[in-house]
Amino acid sequence: MTADLKLGLNLGYWPASPPPGQLELVTTADDCGYASLWTAEAWGSDAVSPLAWYGAHTKRIKLATGLIQLSARTPACTAMTVATLDHLSGGRVILGLGVSGPQVVEGWYGVPFPKPLARTREYVDIVRKALVRDEPVTADGPHYPLPYPGGTGLGKPLKMILHPLRPQVPIYLGAEGPRNVALAAEIADGWVPIFYHAERGPKAYADALAGARPGFEIACPVTVSITDDVSAGLQLVKWTVAFYIGGMGARTVNFHYDLMGRLGYADEAAEVQRLFLAGDRAAAAAAVPDDLADGIALVGPLARIRERLALWRDSPVTTLLVGGVRDPAQLRALAELF
């Protein structure tokens, strides 16, 4: 159970162009006491540049990458980026990291995807070494060896020139599979799930989170739709779920599809995927169960959302990352519920 459930604003990544009005949402969240602001990246807008802009217009809200893709930057580059932004923001950065999936890693970044857990472990270790700045950074792992064991032979261990404002920036890992979540509980300060079900999530992830240290944070993205038409609000959530089950991954390798099975929706996910890949996206969205959409979101009038917040307070989630809200007045209304 979470004694003090916090709010975050989840902006995600941009579509074809920057969405209008985001700066007003950010400043409203800052004024209303939202704990954190989260940006993302896929194969379009990056996660860091918007945070630098928003950080210049805010005073207290934490600036979180949700998530930086490992394959987009070397661990040394990520450490430099985090140290720079942390100085600019006065120590407000949370570093969220994720491996993404093979379609993006190999199709967009042009690097191999295998061994995601081992790569993540090495990556986090190097970032932390660079930020602590105790000594020149070396690493002997197979994925990110430092210095590089080849090339000219002139590489040497280096220590970051910049002295980080904070040598221990919080690191959260985005993860879906049980082993990935267990890795987050072992080596990270927090976990960023996707499609965490308020009622089924605690049981589904209990074993994976058993090794989490005291103070471990769970920052959970939640689509919020404040509306009197609950059915219409759920339909928007269903479209997103159908897209991830059917389109964000291959037919044979799709982590989101696998997650639905662990939450108890294996048969339903198979039908959603079948319809989506057959080109009938409307039918795929309609095939997403109501209780699945309702369990991963907050939908309805404020009174209903207030009631359903009790489910989240009874879960191990520590921060709800509000997504889907485009009206500053609604952000204020949600803050009042907390």
Rank of each mutant, 00 (worst) to 15 (best):
L5M: 05
L5F: 09
G8C: 04
N10H: 15
G12P: 14
G12A: 14
Y13W: 13
W14G: 02
A16I: 13
L23Y: 06
L25N: 06
L25H: 06
T28Q: 10
T28S: 11
D30R: 15
D31L: 14
A35E: 15
L37F: 07
T39C: 09
E41G: 07
A47K: 03
A47E: 05
A52P: 02
W53T: 10
A56S: 14
T58A: 10
I61M: 01
K62M: 13
L63T: 02
T65V: 07
G66P: 05
S71A: 14
P75H: 10
A79G: 10
A83P: 14
L85H: 12
H87P: 11
S89G: 11
G91T: 03
R92V: 08
I94F: 07
G98C: 13
G98N: 06
G98P: 15
G107R: 08
Y109H: 15
P112T: 10
F113L: 12
K115G: 12
P116A: 03
V127G: 10
R133H: 04
V137A: 03
T138Y: 06
A139P: 00
P142M: 14
H143G: 03
P145L: 07
P145S: 10
Y148I: 09
G151Q: 08
T152A: 15
L154H: 11
I161Y: 12
L165I: 00
Q168M: 04
P170G: 04
G174A: 14
G174Y: 09
A175S: 00
R179W: 03
N180G: 14
E186R: 02
E186W: 01
A188S: 06
A188R: 05
V192T: 13
P193F: 04
Y196T: 09
H197S: 02
R200Y: 11
G201D: 00
G201Q: 01
G201W: 01
P202W: 02
A204H: 03
D207W: 00
D207R: 08
A208W: 03
R213F: 00
R213T: 04
R213N: 04
F216V: 11
C220M: 10
T223L: 14
T227E: 06
G233T: 10
R251A: 15
H256P: 01
R262I: 02
D267A: 10
A270T: 09
E271D: 11
Q273G: 15
A278T: 06
G279K: 14
A282H: 06
A283R: 06
A286D: 14
A287V: 15
D291H: 15
D291Q: 15
L292C: 06
D294R: 15
I296R: 12
L298D: 07
L302E: 02
E307S: 09
R308C: 12
A310M: 04
L311R: 11
D314Y: 00
P316R: 10
V317D: 02
T318K: 12
T319W: 08
L320G: 00
G324S: 12
V325Y: 05
V325G: 06
D327I: 07
R332N: 01
R332K: 08
A333L: 01
L334N: 11
E336Q: 12
F338R: 12
